[in-house]
Computed example of a mutant assay.
Amino acid sequence: MTQASSGCIHCLKQLEIVMKILFFGTYLDNRDVLTAFFKSKLAVADETSDPEEALDLVRFYDYDAVVLRIADSRPNEVDLIRRLRIGGLRCPIIAVAHALAEPTRLRVLEAGIDDLIVSAMSQDEIFLRVQNQVRRSRGFQSPSLVIGTVEINMNAKKIFTAGTEVSLTKKEYQIVEILALRKGCVLSKEAILDHLYGGLDEPNPKIIDVFICKIRKKLAALGAGELIETNWGRGYMVAEKRAMPTPAIERAGIEGSAGHRPGSGALLRVGT
């Protein structure tokens, strides 16, 4: 694998997705800087070449994806894919290789891989393909996550509500993105810290309360203050708001007063 060339598209240089990734396998060669590259994009990365340790890690930590280094000479990686799937791992599994013979490719695909990346042109390509797998696994088909009136553009790293950009700091944006990708799930303050800092130099968990407060004020100023909900004693979550159905009595009253239903002639009486 090669480093991204100096002529890389500008928007790719700006990508900084907050993902927690488990990398498995020994380095493919001395040009393999995949883990370091993902960290440079602010991804949190764990790494191991021990299959048993990998299985333990996915049991105890919530990973967004597992990335495996694959080679024809190392069949253990294929066996690990099967064991991860049998164990109930739901996050995307992506295999990366410099070159791979067709029989090995077929075994990898049959084992239940989500994407197989062979001879990628750059680290950026691998990063974007992993990001796309994570996004789709969370139920979003577009690079922009749309929740109610709020749009989260993962490529531009910007948030809009009703077409107006919300001015957020880098950490504030990352928190919104983390919660949006896990829409409907409660994340504890400790889990959010883990995704932001990866266990390194983490501040007091109460800092998350401060971030959330500032985010809510900025969203509220643009009419979207209810995006992030508090689950008392557990943490925070993003839940998509759905329009409540019109009550039957209200509908009947509207229809009766409109007078556009010939022959109905009935008025709704309450408390007769």
Rank of each mutant, 00 (worst) to 15 (best):
L116K: 01
Q123H: 15
R85T: 07
E110V: 08
S119G: 08
L116Y: 01
D114A: 11
G139I: 08
A95T: 00
D115S: 12
T104C: 05
I147V: 09
G112F: 03
T104R: 02
R82G: 15
L84K: 03
S122D: 09
H98M: 15
A101W: 14
L106G: 09
G139P: 07
G148L: 02
I117N: 00
A111N: 06
R138L: 10
R85F: 05
G87T: 09
A101R: 15
D124E: 13
R105P: 05
Q141P: 12
G148E: 03
R90I: 12
G139S: 09
V118Q: 05
I93D: 03
Q123G: 13
L128T: 12
F127W: 14
T149Q: 11
A97D: 04
S122M: 05
P103Q: 02
I81H: 02
R138K: 14
F140S: 04
L84Q: 01
R107G: 06
C91H: 09
F140A: 00
S142D: 14
I113V: 10
R135M: 07
E110T: 08
L89I: 10
I117A: 05
C91D: 08
L89E: 04
V146F: 06
R90V: 13
S122N: 09
L84S: 02
V134M: 04
V134F: 01
E125P: 05
R85V: 06
R105W: 02
E125F: 09
G87L: 10
L106N: 12
R83S: 14
H98K: 15
P92G: 07
P103H: 05
R138T: 12
P103D: 03
S122P: 07
R105H: 04
Q133K: 14
S119N: 11
V134Y: 01
S119R: 10
A97Q: 01
R107L: 08
L80Y: 05
G148D: 02
S144C: 10
E102D: 14
G88R: 06
S142V: 12
R82Y: 15
S137Q: 11
L80T: 01
Q133A: 13
G88E: 06
L100N: 00
E102N: 15
N132A: 13
L106V: 13
L128C: 13
